[in-house]
Design a protein around this nucleic acid. Structure first.
Lengths: 274, 274
DNA sequence: GCACCCGTGAAGATCCTGTGAACAGCAGGC
DNA sequence: GCCTGCTGTTCACAGGATCTTCACGGGTGC
């Protein structure tokens, strides 16, 4: 195995099932296909699933007992990217529909063939990856900035910004979607890999850190713009633009003081949207 | 409670199947869910499928005979965005795996419950929309206006209207339903996400703010029209038009004064129908 | 002419973001 | 094992931006 970036192409799936015969066969097939498969006979805490950075989860809810529905629901909500496939014994139409509406991606009935199980997981993953970006290794340029995924670092000239990993990933995501306004939830989902908890301010804090480091190395550019009530947008712009030219008539009433950059306060915002 | 997008795209699916009973029930359910469903008893040329702008296709390959595999393959290749679901009689594991690997997203076995069929299509579509850049990122044009969901903002030329989030969502909703008169309650329901309290004037206030900003950037057009006792309608019209051409006979009575824009008062209303 | 509806402006409440700092987790070095 | 530096997370506060609400008056339909 080799090191890979944050954007790893290895397919990692987990199986939660007590039918060891089925799981063993599945495991063999998965190995042939080059997938990483981990198995468990009981519920795995959602936190751990997050840490495993899974692409798919095949689960028999029967092993969860009463906790099955809440568990599935929690998983689906926390990890919307995860290919969540159920494979279980008899079930009613209502149960299947409930599961699918909850966020389960596919529902198979046992006995099911391992090959079909893999094919279905694959189909879900393919569907999911469609919208996704291709291999990311090409450096991006923006303003004075050069963002190099191969180094997990951004540079101004030859000076690195000394970004930490999360900072880099956030910057890279924003820069990839240059010009687009990204909602906080989307950002969190894509950088952290799971759903943002209500009230989490991490994205804001990291944006602040990024701005700080960006400004240190590239003071005359503004890169990250706030969109009130929505999220952030990446777009390199020469700083100091206050867009006066837009005002039809400045109408210098009385308080016509320049209002320019007072001391160290810097205008990060363009507030295109509120 | 949080803000939500107001964009509710219609889901369009097609069914290719000869089992008219099944299709009829399906069709009923789809209607209830607010989906558009079109039916066909034989193969539909891929070109036509493209033109239909479908979100999903439910198909029984049995009606295609020998052409089934190539047909499925062509569809999957031409329309990777389409949720392609098979629902057919008995099949072998090998057939199912082949189908899934070809690009079929889900494979059900008849007899299958219509509700489950819809739930599965929905599940595929949901998965698909996740990785994807917003479905509704296509900008709308109206008069001098360009409405860009990717920026949560509307522009005239390159000048943004500087709409806040709510203002934008309201404008976008109205523009999506261009030409339709929308009741206040409906508008509130879709933009705010919950039912409007009796006597709430928020919609009116936001329409006013919108008109104000629209007029600032695009003074020679009227976009939002009031329908007394009902609600509002979006339709870009060059300003100053009083719709004389609609009256059977202009019959220039006496009040033929230009009634043009007196000072700052502007006519927002067209009052086509009370 | 009379109810009712809508446009308008403003004020207060509410929500959102920037900011600084404290806290927790982890890895490496001693 | 213990200390230390680096990261990432969480919290509380303050200043603004935005949203809601209200009252008033003119407009509209009957």
């Amino acid at each position: 195995m080799r090191l890979r970036g944050a954007y790893n192409p290895v397919i990692r799936i987990a199986v939660i099932d007590t039918d060891s015969g089925f799981v063993t066969v599945l495991s063999k097939r998965a190995e042939v296909a080059g997938w990483q498969l981990s198995r468990s006979a009981g519920p795995v805490p959602p936190r751990d699933l997050v840490a495993m950075k899974l692409n798919g989860l095949l689960i028999d809810p029967a092993v969860l007992g009463d906790e099955a529905w809440p568990y599935l629901e929690r998983i689906a909500a926390m990890l919307p990217e995860l290919a969540l496939v159920v494979c279980t014994g008899r079930s009613t139409v209502a149960q299947r529909v409930r599961g699918l509406r909850l966020g389960v991606d596919d529902w198979m009935t046992k006995p099911c063939h391992p090959e079909e199980a893999l094919a279905r997981i694959e189909a879900v993953a393919r569907r999911h990856n469609h919208g996704r970006r291709e291999v990311e290794s090409a450096p991006l340029s923006a303003g004075e900035l050069e963002i190099r995924p191969d180094r997990f670092q951004a540079f101004v000239g030859s000076e690195p910004l000394e970004l930490t990993r999360r900072e880099f990933e956030l910057l890279y995501l924003l820069a990839e979607e240059r010009g687009q306004v990204l909602e906080r939830e989307k950002i969190y989902q894509r950088v952290w890999g799971y759903a943002m908890a209500h009230g989490d301010r991490s994205v804001d804090v990291f944006v602040r850190k990024l701005r700080h480091k960006l400004e240190k190395r590239s003071p005359s550019w503004a890169y990250i713009h706030t969109h009130f009530g929505i999220g952030y947008r990446f777009e390199p712009e020469p700083a100091g633009i206050v867009k006066e030219e837009l005002r039809p008539a400045p109408a210098p009433t009385k308080t016509s003081e320049p209002r320019a950059n007072s001391s160290s306060q810097v205008v990060h915002k363009t507030f295109t949207a509120g």
